[in-house]
Each structure stands twice: as structure tokens, then as C-alpha cells.
Computed example of a mutant assay.
Amino acid sequence: MKNSLLNITFNTTDALGLAQWWASAFDGRIVDENDGWFVFVSLGEGRPGLAFQKVDAPAGGNRLHLDFGVDDMAAAVAGLVSAGATVVGERSMPGFTWTTLADPEGNEFCVAEHG
């Protein structure tokens, strides 16, 4: 049996709203809304989907972590911040730099330049 990643799922009190934010921020598109209780976002062919599951109250803190590769980190971070993300911190280690951000509900993710 072949295993493959289908979706990365967020628990959220506003599944449709958060799905719209992620779709807009990363040039994705909502492909299924399910009346706002389980919303799917496609980020393009060959990429895992993002899913947003409506819950009364998310349990605990950030339950997942996403890393995105971009061509221009400064421009990507600026665009994400202007869309409603917040910068959590700038990080680096020898030969690699990235920025940790949070979406409008506080879910953290990282952005780094390809290569």
C-alpha cells in the first residue's frame, strides 16, 4: 500500500475564513467548502492540500508546522504581513535563514528562500 500526504489540517473556529486567508496568501484555491465545517484548499498539482476543520475551541497550541520555500523571502514576508500575518521571529543557522510567522489565528509557519 502506497502512503501519501493528502492534507495538512488545521483545527479552527472559523474554517472558511482561515481557509480563505491561506488560499489568498499562497495563491491557492478553495476546492470544497462543506458548509464551512471542513474546507479544502488546493495549493496546486503535486502539493499537499490544506484542510480547515471547524471546532468549538482548538485544543492546545499549534498542532502542526509548515515550511514554505519562496524566491524572495523579504517580499514574501512583507506580503504575508500586509495580508494579516504577524512575524514571530527571524531565525538563522550557518547557511540558512528563515522567518517564523503566525496566521490570523496564531498558527505558526516558516518562510525561507529556495536553495
Rank of each mutant, 00 (worst) to 15 (best):
T12N: 07
T12E: 01
T13Q: 11
T13L: 03
L16D: 00
L18P: 00
A19L: 03
W21Y: 14
W21F: 14
A23K: 01
S24T: 13
S24Q: 14
D27Q: 10
V31M: 09
D32Y: 04
W37S: 08
F40Y: 03
V41L: 06
E45V: 09
P48W: 08
P48V: 09
G49M: 13
A51L: 00
F52C: 10
D56F: 02
P58A: 08
P58R: 03
P58W: 05
A59S: 13
G61M: 12
L64Y: 13
H65T: 11
H65A: 14
D67K: 11
D67P: 11
G69A: 15
G69S: 13
D71M: 05
D72I: 07
D72L: 09
D72G: 10
A75G: 12
A76W: 08
A78H: 07
G79N: 14
L80W: 04
L80C: 13
V81K: 12
V81C: 10
V88P: 04
S92H: 15
M93Q: 13
G95D: 13
F96Y: 15
W98H: 10
L101C: 06
L101Y: 09
L101H: 05
A102S: 14
E105S: 07
G106K: 04
G106I: 05
N107W: 05
E108W: 01
F109M: 07
C110W: 03
V111N: 08
V111T: 07
